[in-house]
Design a protein around this nucleic acid. Sequence first.
DNA 1: GTCTATATCTAGATAGAC
DNA 2: GTCTATCTAGATATAGAC
Lengths: 214, 214
Amino acid sequence: MARRDTRELILTTSLELFNEYGEPNVTTNQIADEADISPGNLYYHFRSKDDIVLELFKRFLVRFQPLIEVSGESLLQAEDLWFQLHLSFELKGQFRFLYRNLMDLTARIPNLDHAMRGLLQRERKSALNSLAGLEQAGVAVFDDWQRELLADSILLSLTYWIPFVELFEPDGAEDGSAQTRAIARVLLIVTPHFREPERSQFTTLARRYLTEVE
Amino acid sequence: MARRDTRELILTTSLELFNEYGEPNVTTNQIADEADISPGNLYYHFRSKDDIVLELFKRFLVRFQPLIEVSGESLLQAEDLWFQLHLSFELKGQFRFLYRNLMDLTARIPNLDHAMRGLLQRERKSALNSLAGLEQAGVAVFDDWQRELLADSILLSLTYWIPFVELFEPDGAEDGSAQTRAIARVLLIVTPHFREPERSQFTTLARRYLTEVE
DNA sequence: GTCTATATCTAGATAGAC
DNA sequence: GTCTATCTAGATATAGAC
């Protein structure tokens, strides 16, 4: 098999196993086994297990970065905001092992720690940006302290909703209905601060999606 | 040393180390070392490492259970609600290792899994109860779907806020200001749904506490 | 109750043949 | 590039003396 193919095979196999069982509970031997290669071969392609994790994180980052670079103004339409959140949750679901053991992974892998810290900071800024966009459009008004607290609430949801759902329904992160609820929840944190007509507008959208899924 | 004392010493030492480094990153040898006893002695008092975790969880449960048995009506006063949330976050901070590796701990220890699932269910019911109490008092009105989503938001905060804060500020969970922000955040999720005068009342309280701390 | 010494096991990682 | 065989380290847990 070509060099490239085996490397990819190891990555996709690792991702599947990590997501299903959690990274600490998957051994390199299991990965090799599942990928039908030898343990030695795995270590020909990757220096260490951490190296695999780091490479997977890079892949995640490349696909996630564009999603938080969206400007605040472009999310004023309820449908656009909804779609953006949907893409975020979906992608994070595909790499959910990263969020299941965030602390332990960052404590163990310095490069991951640095990159993830940066990502969370940018995500928080992005949330604050969106809130500012709403204010500039006259949709809502926040105090300084409210803006900060709301950004924290949003970031908490974006970070730990998937692990949270997995507690109750294993594989719930792959389930569409859990995602819809996640998005509706995030909206419900913010929309009560809207003035009319946007408030009803966003609320109606959330309800429509919710009933469609159930 | 008396039988009882050594057992307690092991528990308190374990709790400290688990909270600081995370349970998976603390070995039984480290615990014994830190407690100035031999590894063999540790295993005289506890059958296994999981046994220590389980006993610590029991201690947590005994102290936490009363906090969620508070009736919804008794939390209508802003100060009472604040105080109740404060006690919750404080206690969870003292046992935060449980929440840092929730999934892996429950997956590994069946008894813990069962007990923790039950606890989360009761906590969710308690949140729903409080919301219902607000409605009965005429402070707010929710749709059915709103009530569920809000309960999820609250439970997510109560479960993962501490690990979330630790990502940014290690030992942030022992810090008073982080706790105050946590409570203010939870309130800010709910209060926008209040009618006046309760809305201003709760909001003012949150701001006052926030400015006091900073 | 407590110690020292050690068994057991499993993980990550390497060596060297093919 | 890939394999088999193996090393090494570290973790949980036990045995048996004191």
